[in-house]
Amino acid sequence: MNRFTIKNVIRLLLISSLSLGVILVTSLGAIMNPASAQGNKPTVVLVHGAFAESASWNGVLTKLITKGYPTVAVANPLRGVKSDADYVASALKDIKGPIVLVGHSYGGSVITNAVNGNQNVKALVYVAGFAPETGETAAALSGRYPGSTLGPTLAPPVALPDGGKDLYIQQSKFHAQFAADVPTNDAQLMASTQRPIVAAAFDEASGAPAWKSTPSWFIYGERDLNIPAAVHAFMAKRANSKETIAVKGASHVVMISHADAVAKLIEHAATTK
């Protein structure tokens, strides 16, 4: 290879390296600040609940991303209301621009406590989610009206090194209890991949609720066996919900079985001035 060819090769390698560096920096910037990558639409941050994981939002995410919304599905630690809320709050601080904060089930308790004065959070969306008042617990709220059958479906608690206990739903009872309107095969996958919640989280008192100062929207299934529909209706009314949707025949995982309706409500929250 002559000297001229070697110089050209080196030059091309340098150009390629610089181009790759630009691509990497741009990609990392989009991850850390999704709103900058997709225009002026608010970033939708979704927080899953107990016995679920971030993939439970996949159907909703697909629809929102198609519409051009920047999205982040946070992996909820499920270790306690305050600690989980602090974790989500820290994630929110790295997002520039307006935010729509969405919580499912126990994730509703988390988003209620995660705003912490963050002025970027413009809307809260409760998807079959708890919306507690100061001092209320998830356990007390779920039992406010009859209809929850979660207790008998729980597996024997798993002891933790710190003395706490992790809770799961028995796989054989998961479909009927948690996701009755989801296909059997999908429900089995959900049962196998469910993430446990520490038992004490259900009895931890909530702090000052964000829904008193931030507009809220609610959607839930009429056949929710974890949190009775009457409880959802009570919480939505108390929070002066901008829009409340009770999905006929839907289970606790309304975001999976009725992703269209959930995504549409999130869009309403995102576009309401």
Rank of each mutant, 00 (worst) to 15 (best):
residue 2 N to F: 13
residue 3 R to Y: 14
residue 3 R to E: 15
residue 4 F to S: 12
residue 7 K to D: 06
residue 9 V to Y: 14
residue 11 R to Y: 08
residue 15 I to L: 10
residue 20 L to Q: 05
residue 30 A to E: 11
residue 30 A to V: 14
residue 32 M to L: 15
residue 34 P to L: 04
residue 38 Q to M: 12
residue 39 G to H: 07
residue 40 N to S: 15
residue 40 N to M: 14
residue 42 P to L: 02
residue 47 V to I: 12
residue 49 G to Y: 13
residue 52 A to T: 09
residue 57 W to L: 03
residue 60 V to K: 02
residue 62 T to V: 03
residue 63 K to S: 13
residue 64 L to K: 04
residue 64 L to A: 08
residue 66 T to W: 05
residue 67 K to M: 05
residue 68 G to A: 03
residue 71 T to F: 08
residue 72 V to M: 12
residue 76 N to P: 10
residue 77 P to N: 01
residue 79 R to L: 12
residue 82 K to T: 14
residue 82 K to E: 14
residue 83 S to A: 14
residue 86 D to Y: 10
residue 87 Y to R: 00
residue 91 A to L: 09
residue 95 I to K: 06
residue 96 K to D: 14
residue 98 P to S: 04
residue 102 V to Y: 05
residue 113 N to I: 02
residue 115 V to I: 08
residue 116 N to F: 06
residue 118 N to H: 10
residue 119 Q to K: 13
residue 119 Q to Y: 00
residue 120 N to Y: 10
residue 127 V to D: 13
residue 128 A to H: 06
residue 132 P to E: 05
residue 132 P to L: 04
residue 135 G to D: 11
residue 137 T to Y: 13
residue 138 A to L: 09
residue 140 A to T: 12
residue 142 S to W: 09
residue 145 Y to L: 10
residue 145 Y to N: 08
residue 147 G to S: 02
residue 148 S to H: 12
residue 149 T to N: 04
residue 151 G to W: 04
residue 156 P to W: 09
residue 157 P to S: 01
residue 160 L to T: 06
residue 168 Y to C: 02
residue 174 F to Y: 15
residue 180 A to M: 06
residue 180 A to D: 02
residue 181 D to W: 11
residue 186 D to W: 11
residue 195 R to Y: 01
residue 196 P to Q: 00
residue 197 I to D: 01
residue 198 V to T: 13
residue 199 A to R: 11
residue 204 E to L: 01
residue 207 G to Y: 07
residue 213 S to W: 01
residue 214 T to Q: 07
residue 214 T to G: 06
residue 216 S to L: 02
residue 220 Y to V: 02
residue 222 E to V: 04
residue 223 R to D: 12
residue 224 D to T: 07
residue 227 I to P: 08
residue 230 A to M: 03
residue 231 V to K: 02
residue 232 H to E: 09
residue 233 A to D: 11
residue 237 K to I: 03
residue 240 N to G: 13
residue 246 A to G: 15
residue 248 K to Q: 08
residue 263 A to F: 07
residue 265 L to Q: 06
residue 266 I to T: 00
residue 269 A to V: 11
residue 269 A to E: 07
residue 272 T to W: 00
